[in-house]
Design a protein around this nucleic acid. Sequence first.
RNA 1: GCGCCCGUAGCUCAACUGGAUAGAGCAUCUGACUACGAAUCAGAAGGCUAGGAGUUCGAAUCUCUUCGGGCGCGCCA
Length: 602
Amino acid sequence: MPAGDRSRPGAIACACGGVSGFMNVFKTIRQQLLSVLGDMVSAGELPAGVDTSRVTVEPPREASHGDVSTNAAMVLAGQVKANPRQLAPKVAERLKALPGVIGVEIAGPGFINLRFSATFWQAQLPVILRAGLAYGDSNSGAGQPVNVEYVSANPTGPLHAAHARGAVVGDALANLLTKAGFSVTREYYINDAGAQVDVLGRSAYLRYREALGEQIGDIPAGLYPGDYLKDVGEKLAARDGRRWLETPESTWLPATRDIAIDLIMAGIREDLLALGVNIDVFTSERALVAAGAVQAAFDTLVTRGLIYEGVLEPPKGKTPDDWEPRPQTLFRATNFGDDVDRPLRKSDGSWTYFANDIAYHLDKYQRGARVLIDVWGADHGGYIKRMQAATNAITEGGAALDVKICQLVHLMDQGKPVKMSKRAGTFVTLRDVIEQVGRDVVRFIMLTRRNDQTLEFDFAKVTEQSKDNPVFYVQYCHARCRSVLRHAGEPAAEALAAGAPLDRLSSPEELELIRLLAAWPRLVEAAAEAHEAHRVAFFLYDLAAGFHGLWNKGKDDTTLRFLVEDDAGLTQARLALVKAVAVVIASGLKVIGVEPAEELRS
RNA sequence: GCGCCCGUAGCUCAACUGGAUAGAGCAUCUGACUACGAAUCAGAAGGCUAGGAGUUCGAAUCUCUUCGGGCGCGCCA
């Protein structure tokens, strides 16, 4: 397994383009609140210039605390040297006048809890139904250019199972940012410049001789043994015949290396497409070096006085046997928060991987990105600080780098670990996984944990049809919605939005479900800001739970069923709700890159 | 030895970036199928958020420290 492979352990474009975002109800209420606070300043109840930036408006954790909660009194009380419980009533009194508000309470240390009328919540349904999959689209990203770099697997072999996580995390994050109104570039960095691709070239050469009839025996240690290189050898033989057989390595290595990289990258692209990943830009490290980008970045750092020749201290505690002090060309990473300064040149004069990466991040910046996101494997954690330091230095603070580290994926089958060994030929390719469980399952499961937590992927469990399996649970919810809508003759969304008597949706469970639906735009914005796509998967699970709950209430109490035989109006209203649930589930699955299921059959 | 990530119910994990009584799901107990799909649902029980100290109106979240696990540690990528 080559080191350096950034994603090691490890969509569908948004239709709206973020032209007009759908207002997040909490954001709307926050603006109304800020306006109220402004009125209080005018009335002399608050001093001019109070800082409202930390005022939040959010759904309370406890449903009993109302629909919407704000910390305004607590945040402002400190600034005006007042008690939050004394300030709160003044704010609360004015909030009573807001549209839709039917209750205002002060609770705990000074929270102000608002309750909104059923009509207010019911009115969210037409918004959802008319928006369709675009519901939740936001312009909070304001078209800001973001570059998401992910996968970036070394071009020395096909993608394997461990690459799936980084691929999905990066891709879903790109989808999420797109939905939130950012201008996203999906990027793959091809590490085709180091010693390992020379090894690849030599390995391919051996397979080339094999293809020409030679007995090559066992693959020598230090070369890649994989069978996938046989194909490369055969193509090379077919193209170039016997011309390389009697020539020295220096003549054939560039040819064997390049064809091997090209063929392997072609395979990687196919595998990514099979996973639903569409990369916009593939950047070659080798091309970057050849174009002088590294030299240019280096010169810039020299100009800024950030390069010097020096000798590093030996690493404490674990000094390598062959360690000896030597002068190196160093970048002043410590000026930007790193622990030590980092070498940019090897002793043979060539650039280090890090030097190339500085040029690469500058390149992304020069192409317009102001937010850079890199998705890496867990073994690259120690590389984060220096890369952030370098990005900060080379862009003069113009771009921020966020690195998402993906923890290991433990492949299991029925609770037992799947043993993988490249040498024994038992490593599981990404292609194998997709063929065995399907693209949708791979994508969803990879988002059922935070990226920095280890994740268990059990082949048996992820295809199980039970509530143990979150993919199934969410898909089942969508399938149930679709089942109801089919029974009802597929009413059009617009007809439901315009014609259904939504005031008939009055049960606490129904209103609770609408509140959940209305939280989707807020979740999109928050998750995009935090660069955390897994929140979408958790949201969908919660939404599915809410729907399954309502469904089963209808088993105990037939008056709660969606289709009510002798009450066409009530049926229409409930169909609007069901349709809205299906829409939001589908909208969320689209971010994850999963096709919503029409029905589930075993 | 140093740095980074992590430690939350018996198990697997959340917690909207500093908010209220820390929430779900498995597993355990109790209950619900003459249906728009019970592949599901409702309820009970389960906690000193690894331990300690600090910051403030308020801490799982921020700071310090101890313990325990993972990753990394000068010319590999």
